[in-house]
C-alpha cells in the first residue's frame, strides 16, 4: 500500500521536475502519467507472465482514486462563489459561451472520432 502510494508520488515528482527543468507546457502529473505508463509497458514486455497491475496494491490504490475522482474537484469548485461578482457582471455571455461551447465540443469531438474510425474500418475491407 505504502509502496503503491510512493510509486504514484515519485512519478508525479519526476514529472514536475521534468516539466519545470525543461520548461515544458505540460503539467507534472501528466508527464508522471506518461512515465508510469511507460514503466508498466516495459514491465509487461520484460515479464509477460507477471501478474497484471490490477492485482497489485498499485492497481487497488489507482482504482480507489479514480472511483472517487469527482471528490477531488470539490475543493476547487467551492471557490466559484468567490467570483460571483465577475460572473454576475458578465453572466449572460459567460454562461452562453460555456454551455454552447461545451455542447459543440462534445458533438464535434465524438462525431469526428466516429467518422474517422469508420473510414479506417472501411479502408481495411477489401
Amino acid at each position: 500500500m505504502i509502496e503503491a502510494i510512493l510509486i504514484l508520488l515519485v512519478c508525479q515528482l519526476f514529472g514536475e521536475a521534468l516539466a519545470r527543468g525543461l520548461g515544458l507546457p505540460v503539467p507534472g502529473p501528466v508527464l508522471g502519467m506518461a512515465l508510469l505508463f511507460t514503466a508498466l509497458q516495459v514491465r509487461a514486455r520484460l515479464r509477460p507472465d507477471a501478474p497484471g497491475v490490477e492485482t497489485l496494491p498499485l492497481g487497488a490504490v489507482a482504482a480507489f482514486l479514480l472511483a472517487n475522482l469527482s471528490l477531488l474537484f470539490v475543493p476547487a469548485g467551492a471557490g466559484i462563489m468567490s467570483h460571483a461578482a465577475t460572473l454576475a457582471e458578465h453572466g449572460a455571455g459567460l454562461i452562453v459561451a460555456l454551455v454552447l461551447s461545451t455542447a459543440v465540443t462534445l458533438a464535434v469531438t465524438a462525431l469526428v472520432f466516429v467518422k474517422v474510425a469508420g473510414l479506417g474500418r472501411r479502408g481495411d475491407a477489401p
Binding site: Q12, G28, L36, L40, E54, G59, V61, L66, V74
Partner: peptide, 24 residues
C-alpha cells in the same frame, strides 16, 4: 482551502494513476 487542500492535493496522484487503465 486550508482544510480542503488535502483532498485537492490528490488530483496529482490521481492523474498519474490514469496510467493504469491506459496500460490495461
Amino acid at each position: 482551502f486550508e482544510g480542503a487542500q488535502f483532498v485537492h492535493f490528490l488530483l496529482g496522484p490521481a492523474t498519474v494513476a490514469l496510467a493504469i487503465p491506459l496500460h490495461r
